[in-house]
């Protein structure tokens, strides 16, 4: 196991940021998903020996993050979400600094190699202030890879990048896994996690609410997801074979074994409640839907959030 935690917990004063989580991560791309403030970064900080757990244990490559912190740091690399690269230094100098700090043996060649790997060779001797956001991210990956870590921790690696830079980032991450690096990622982009992660854990308010491969998680909520765009107050519904999934503003989501059969039933039932149905659509479940279901408690107060959201919109105008 590359990463293993037992009841890992972190309190900030009275607030519980990470609540007794148990993780087992093998040689894979593992995604820790959740909304902002769910405890993703706190978890990563504990695993990378940057924060002391309040309770529980964590092991990285078999080393205790508390008692063998230095050994842990020898086998990991950590890329925080801040995009911290020295803009007045060149790309090569940035990587060389890390090679030196890691004590890499053949550093000149190794630096060239990782720059090449990240597609930065041509611009390696330019100062980083001329780099795009995507290039800076890849430069950070190059820094992280220069000592050949066994586990790579990436905190929101695609935050703030455009579509093509994201795709490129994920291609690099996927190719690293083929080389045998375990990748532990946090993100709140469900679609990316769905496409690229081998397994994901959904964390909400410090608790792991679901953990499996994206495919299995999606299967677990049903075959089809039906989205009904309505106006009016939804009072709940009781039809066999159709389960209420959650509400996002004017879109109410349901799951059903057969979407095409459920559609007419739904349409009728919703109209009977006095709702105006604008559209109905059927599609395969996504991780967003899983998320909606697992973290559903806050969605039940949908009308409240709805109101808040509307006032927010009004204020913006």
């Amino acid at each position: 196991m590359s990463v293993k935690t037992y009841e890992l917990t972190k309190y900030f004063n009275k607030r519980c940021a990470v609540d007794h989580i148990n993780l087992e991560v093998g040689n894979e791309i593992f995604g820790l998903l959740g909304p902002n403030g769910a405890g993703k970064t706190t978890t990563v900080l504990m695993l990378t020996t940057l924060l002391k757990p309040s309770m529980g244990e964590a092991y990285v490559c078999g080393f205790d993050v508390l008692k063998e912190a230095k050994k842990v740091r020898n086998v990991i690399s950590y890329v925080p979400q801040d995009m911290a690269v020295d803009i007045k230094l060149t790309g090569r100098e940035n990587v060389l600094l890390f090679a030196k700090l890691y004590g890499v043996a053949d550093r000149k060649n190794k630096v060239d190699e990782v720059l090449e790997l990240m597609g930065l060779s041509e611009r390696a001797d330019d100062r980083v202030n001329s780099y795009s956001g995507g290039m800076r991210r890849r430069l950070e990956l190059a820094q992280a890879l220069v000592h050949e870590p066994q586990v790579l921790f990436l905190d929101e690696p695609t935050l703030g990048l455009d579509v093509s830079a994201r795709r490129k980032m994920w291609e690099h991450i996927s190719s690293l896994k083929k080389k045998g690096v375990t990748i532990f990622i946090t993100t709140h982009y469900m679609d990316e996690a769905d496409k690229f992660c081998d397994r994901v854990a959904i964390i909400d308010r410090g608790k792991i609410v679901a953990m499996d491969s994206p495919a299995k998680l999606k299967n677990s909520i049903g075959k089809d997801v039906i989205t009904a765009s309505v106006s009016g107050e939804f009072k709940g519904l009781n039809i066999e074979g159709i389960t209420f999934l959650g509400r996002e503003i004017d879109n109410i989501k349901f799951t059903a074994e057969s979407g095409s059969e459920a559609l007419p039933l739904l349409s009728e039932a919703l109209s009977r409640q006095g709702l105006k149905v604008h559209s109905l659509s059927v599609r395969e479940p996504s991780l967003d839907d899983v998320f909606l279901q697992k973290v559903g408690t806050q969605e039940e107060q949908g009308s409240f959030d709805d109101y808040k959201f509307r006032t927010l919109l009004r204020r913006r105008k």
């Binding site: 020996t49 230095k70 740091r73 925080p80 979400q81 890691y102």
Partner: peptide, 12 residues
């Protein structure tokens, strides 16, 4: 800017 955290995660 996050440099400190990056440095603290190094084995030096």
């Amino acid at each position: 800017l996050g440099f400190l955290n990056k440095f603290l995660a190094l084995p030096v």
